[in-house]
Design a protein around this nucleic acid. Structure first.
Length: 277
DNA sequence: AGTGCCGCCTGCACGC
DNA sequence: TGCGTGCAGGCGGCAC
């Protein structure tokens, strides 16, 4: 489910229900997900006020005065804001109960595959940016500093296929399997091309493609999930607009040639051999 | 340092 | 109907 746009839409959706609210309870229904939950999370958060929300790559950040709650949705996670007392579903693992003008509400983390994470980073633990999971991350694709020049410079010593370099997240964050496929299509670049052999002009095009595609997906998601309360868990508001992802054998929307599907590093890649050279 | 591969999990679509 | 297989939007850890 979540690549950068989904995480950002989630952040925007939950933010109005969290910011300035006081945490009244924390419920952990298992030991952890990918990593153990912080065992003292209840003591850390109950009675504390949420100051703001943020995002770094696909990590959702919930800021408190004394630290940051870091949430990752993995492959299958989602967050919903629900009225307190909403019945549990299988794989609802974590609740943050807050009080506000609407009464008590629950921020509920649902994650069947449990590749997600909930972590605490206290202000005593140093800079959040230096956290082991965050310090190797590349630039934010929707912020200043991301452009073709950066992609070009960062890939001079990379011989891996551009698709896998994009996915690795150490140059630019937030571009997952779908948006990597889609942005390479939009830029007309074959996903198998070694990253270091792509020139400056093509990277200008790729950077622009990434920006536009991510920004469009956020707008689309935001308009679909107008009210984040009790939305159903459907994924893929962006999927009707895919050009290549999940369209193996279907005619390319641009040239009509059948979209190809290959494997790169255990992940499916979709591309058009005619439009992407 | 860069690269490729493994594994963590459940759910679902598919073929038999 | 059941069962096995392969696949899924992420990513850290490891060996080389």
């Amino acid at each position: 489910m979540p690549e950068l746009p989904e995480v950002e839409v989630t952040r925007r959706g939950v933010a109005p229900h969290l910011e300035q609210r006081i945490v009244e309870d924390v419920v952990l229904r298992r030991e952890g997900l990918r990593w153990p939950f912080p065992p003292n999370l209840r003591e850390l958060l109950v009675g504390r006020q949420i100051l703001s929300t943020g995002r770094r790559g696909k990590y959702l950040l919930i800021h408190f005065e004394h630290g940051v709650l870091v949430v990752h949705l993995g492959m299958s996670g989602h967050l919903r804001v629900l009225p307190e007392g909403t019945p549990l579903k299988t794989h609802d693992h974590f609740d943050l109960v807050v009080n506000g003008p609407e009464g008590r509400q629950v921020l509920r983390l649902h994650d069947p595959r449990r590749f997600g994470a909930v972590l605490w980073h206290g202000h005593d633990d140093g800079e959040l940016a230096q956290h082991a999971l965050l310090r190797g991350l590349g630039v934010e694709p929707l912020e200043d500093g991301f452009d073709g020049a950066l992609l070009y410079e960062a890939t001079r010593n990379r011989n891996a296929p551009i698709k896998q370099v994009l996915l690795s997240g150490d140059i630019v964050v937030g571009v997952g399997n779908i948006y990597a496929c889609e942005s390479l299509f939009r830029a007309g670049i074959n996903p198998k091309t070694p990253a270091g052999r792509i020139g400056r002009a093509r990277y200008d095009k790729l950077a622009e493609a990434i920006r536009v595609i991510l920004a469009d997906a956020i707008v689309l998601g935001g308009s679909t999930l107008r009210d984040f309360i009790a939305v159903n868990g459907q994924s893929g508001y962006f999927q009707d607009t895919y050009f290549v992802y999940d369209r193996a054998g279907v005619p390319c929307r641009n040239c009509g040639a059948p979209v190809r599907q290959i494997k790169q590093g255990q992940r499916s890649t979709f591309y058009c051999a005619t439009c992407q050279k």
